[in-house]
Design a protein around this nucleic acid. Structure first.
Lengths: 343, 343
DNA sequence: ATATACTTTTTACGCGCGCTAAGTTTTGAC
DNA sequence: GTCAAAACTTAGCGCGCGTAAAAAGTATAT
């Protein structure tokens, strides 16, 4: 490896013994040049560490090879996990992913979308804030940029939506809980930051009605994404209030459930399905840590792999075709019931 | 807001009624133009949504306003949390942060550093893989780009290192555990992916010796970042082996501890400090979820805020000064003992 | 050998902006 | 009203590359 600095493609082309446009062509698609030419370039590539200037490249290309990945809250392991999958898929497919987190704030989401727009990305994988999103901004963005929405659906926006069938999650869990014990009450936030809470509540109400049981919903106070803390604090409040109608509780998501488990522990309640336990607690999401709670959390898990794969594939297809789908596609994946010992 | 599309700075300058260089000057520093001129530009900015083409801008500036943030594993809530802090600080200071995760892989870390180099960043905040890092690559990178290392120190590399005093963590915890009960044994990974494990082991050995106790270390088998799972599986193996010399165990980090708690639960062991408990479990890190385990985890917490603040400030100072510090600076923050009920 | 279809080279322009130098206007202090 | 300083305008180069068109070269088939 020579230490000689190569300034630009012109110089590098000289080292290869080919012309600059040919080198340019090579970088756009190594297969588009003759095998012999390719070898010469690749040999030079090993002797000198030259990289095309990304800014010059992107300025001149109509569309870049960038892909934006936007999640509402990256410190949530659920999104961290999905982002990890997506990033890897993008790299494998030869794109340059850029990762953004809205940190739960509308202004930041808007700002990210604006930044993204000026990046001329080939496409964007967007998990919007949901209710907290600025609908008009997101809508306009999706018109301008090929976008796959995931996790959180905003009706009519984006070319494709890929996510989980949230009512199915709740319905399956309610059914399971009813068959194995007392019908559950429902623990959720009054003003949830995460997008799918509304659908889950409705799913609970519908499922309970279908099973012929009276629903009971407890709404936790609190704002923001500190879900475990809210689950703990409000869980204690709920337990102390004596309002609980049932010894089975379904939490709107695993993070609330983790908090609620802590509340139970603090109140000396034994959680689980065995005879000597006082209460059953279930969650929803298949949170990466849900198998390590005490007791391990019974939950309905997203099909992470499928959601990431499908989102990425959909976007890649759109990019390759060059045209957006005529009608909006929606793909919902079922969740998988994971029976552990908490419920 | 007019819908008229503005193609470039030339056009936008015309709308403002000022010349292009003046607009350019404004975007580089709004205070560098006369107040009246600034008003005219900002009014136009409200009527038309123009943004300078970031690729053209970055191509022509010697240094961009980009800051790279690199962490070894973003799906680890510890790094997610720090990354969130850092990102916010960069934006506040007028920079454009780009977030990268090495996903625990050396090749990816190298690739990220290469990408970063070609981004001509003003500076980089780097939490390296540590032992798994390619020392030469990181070293060369730090010579080329102003870099603040954080969390994981690589001796002699980078202009500044900001992190926690890991031996102090272990030492403090060992002291606490010895004063309140049986001296702890130590639970760690044989080949830990996280960088500071070595220092913690040494800290344990030193502290035990200082206290006049015989150390006992159990090394968990397993590779990668699935620390909870390893803690659970190997925890069970340890408990079943009957090798445990003490009823107090200190885990090398909170994620292992979370797994170990699950192992205890599964084995019917009651964890905690009260009389009716069988075992005390402590962790290290102040993991965001450590307060929601059952029982809540006694741990030594990083000073997240201080580490992020200091890292960011150090980098900003280097960037503003324009010159790198003559000698390498190291700043270690003490951890805070957080007494909960697990130990 | 000749025709045909690819590849590659040459030449040249354009992208949008940073930056500089020279000339012009505006500002504010006296 | 004068005058120097500050802010502006005009003009123009350069950054590193994509890309298009035309010319030249090269592989494959007849």
């Amino acid at each position: 490896m020579s230490t000689e600095k190569i300034k630009n493609m012109e110089e590098f082309a000289a080292k290869c013994g080919v012309s600059r446009p040919t080198v340019s062509k090579y970088f756009n698609d190594p297969n588009s040049v003759r095998a012999k030419t390719r070898r010469r370039i690749e040999e030079a590539l090993e002797r000198f560490d030259y990289r095309p200037n990304i800014y010059a490249v992107n300025q001149n290309r109509r569309l870049t090879k960038n892909i934006g990945i936007v999640v509402p809250y990256l410190a949530d392991p659920f999104f961290a996990e999905i982002a990890r999958f997506l990033e890897t898929r993008c790299i494998e497919a030869g794109f340059s992913p850029s990762l953004f987190s809205s940190h739960g704030k509308q202004e930041l989401e808007n700002e990210i979308l604006n930044t993204l727009r000026s990046m001329k990305p080939a496409g964007v994988l967007l998990a919007p804030l949901g209710r907290a999103s600025d609908r008009k901004v997101v809508e306009q963005f999706c018109r301008d940029v090929p976008t796959v929405l995931f996790d959180s659906n905003i009706e009519g926006i984006g070319d494709v939506f890929v996510g989980s069938d949230n009512p199915q999650f709740t319905s399956m869990m309610v059914q399971y809980l009813c068959r194995t014990g007392e019908p559950p009450c429902f623990f959720e936030m009054k003003t949830p930051p995460n997008p799918n809470a509304g659908k889950r509540r409705q799913g609970y109400l519908d499922a309970m009605e279908k099973q012929g049981h009276e629903p009971y919903i407890f709404q936790a106070q609190g704002e923001g994404w500190a879900l475990e803390e809210i689950g703990l604090r409000e869980g204690i409040r709920l337990l102390d209030s004596g309002e609980m109608q049932s010894s089975t509780i379904l939490c709107s998501n695993d993070r609330l459930a983790i908090g609620f488990l802590a509340a139970c522990f603090q109140n000396g309640l034994r959680v689980g399905i065995s005879q000597d336990c006082d209460i059953r607690v279930a969650g929803l999401d298949g949170h990466p840590f849900s198998s390590f709670t005490c007791p391990p959390l019974t939950t309905v898990s997203h099909d992470y792999q499928a959601i990431s794969e499908r989102s990425a594939e959909s976007l890649f297809n759109m990019i390759e075709d060059g045209n957006r789908p005529t009608s909006r596609e929606e793909k919902l994946f079922d969740g998988k019931l994971i029976m552990r010992t908490s419920a």
